[in-house]
Amino acid sequence: MRIDLAGKTALVTGSTRGIGAAIATGLARAGARVAVNGRSHESVDKALDELRDGAPGADFIGLAGDVATEEGARAVIDALPRTDILINNLGVFGAEPALEITDDEWRRYFETNVLSGVRLTRAYLPGMSARGFGRVQYIASDSAIVIPAEMIHYGVSKTSLLAVARGFAKTAAGTGVTVNSVLAGPTHTGGVEGFVRQMVGDELPWDQAQRVFMREHRPQSLLQRLIEPEEIANMVVYLSSPLASATTGAAVRVDGGYIDSIVP
């Protein structure tokens, strides 16, 4: 199976590190021109240097703007009026007792994790539909199905993405554009390392801390380890390709078997 995205432009939000950076690299290695997005020019420039070192010859461009805000999203859209592939990856997470989550924090999670993708889909989907090809994806989470007690605001925001993706897939019906969500399981990123330390403490070596976290806080995982960002990226790259033309309106799992159900 050969995935060829030559001639396609992709935008990956929140792609200066972690899963977003892995997705950007995967798309670029498949031949796409990839817009790397972050909140500041400094973070984007730093990420571009690192991505180009890791994927020599790949076609990356920088696109600074905080798409969690209307102004930042507009700046990104103005700088990149057309894209063939839109990966809504931007997200925030963190542990907080359910009864202590303020209204402002609920709004921040919704603006960042949900409305950022809605804004960009609303802007780019019409052009994709008119051209007869497009791929829109929302990076969701196992937490969309298995709401974590320690961060219900995060889980609820990811549940919303499943509905958003399904709804926009209906909007794009029959156009050649597919819209899907990707249910990513517990993944090894810098942010997750910090979260693991928050949950199990700083005393243990990382490999042991990871095992304790999975055993005590994510015991449903069949993989029994954190997923690597590249493993998430592999699925996203496939769904971005013409090979995935019959997959739309779906919640596709890359969760290490964490979600205990036959169908999402």
Rank of each mutant, 00 (worst) to 15 (best):
L48D: 06
L48G: 07
K46I: 09
A21Y: 07
K46T: 11
S43R: 10
G18Y: 10
V36E: 01
E42L: 12
G31D: 10
G54S: 14
N37I: 09
G62P: 11
E42M: 04
F60I: 04
I19S: 09
N37C: 15
A10H: 15
E50T: 06
T16L: 00
R17G: 05
S40M: 08
N37F: 06
A47G: 07
D59C: 07
L51E: 00
A58C: 09
L27I: 06
E42V: 15
A30V: 13
A32Q: 12
F60C: 14
S40V: 15
V44M: 12
I23N: 10
G31V: 08
D49L: 07
D53H: 05
S43C: 03
A30K: 04
V34M: 13
R17L: 10
G54K: 08
G18R: 06
R33K: 14
S43D: 05
L27R: 13
A24M: 14
G54C: 05
S43E: 01
S15I: 09
A30P: 08
K46C: 02
A22S: 15
S15K: 03
G26H: 07
T16Y: 01
R52K: 01
A47K: 10
A28P: 02
L11M: 14
G57E: 01
G62D: 04
A10L: 13
A30R: 11
I19Q: 01
D59M: 05
A58D: 05
A55T: 14
R52L: 04
G31R: 12
H41L: 03
S43P: 01
L27V: 12
T16F: 00
G26T: 10
D59Y: 07
R17E: 14
G54V: 01
L51Q: 00
P56D: 02
T16V: 14
P56R: 04
G20Q: 13
G31F: 04
A35N: 02
A10P: 14
E42F: 09
A55Y: 00
G14W: 08
I23P: 01
T25P: 01
V36G: 00
S15L: 06
S15P: 03
R33W: 07
G26F: 04
D53F: 08
I19T: 05
S40T: 15
I23M: 12
R33L: 14
D45S: 12
S40W: 04
I61P: 00
E50W: 04
A55F: 00
L27F: 14
G31A: 11
L27S: 11
V12S: 13
V44W: 04
L27W: 13
G38I: 13
H41A: 09
G26W: 12
E50P: 00
A32K: 09
A55I: 04
L51P: 01
G57N: 08
H41S: 12
A58N: 02
T16K: 03
A30E: 03
G18K: 13
A32Y: 08
L63R: 08
P56S: 02
R39G: 09
V12C: 07
L48V: 00
A47N: 06
V44S: 08
L11D: 10
A47W: 01
G38D: 08
A55N: 03
S15Y: 05
D59T: 06
A32M: 10
A47R: 02
I23V: 15
D53Q: 10
G14N: 12
D59W: 10
A24Y: 03
A47S: 11
R39T: 13
K46A: 13
P56N: 05
A21W: 12
A21R: 11
R17P: 01
R33Y: 03
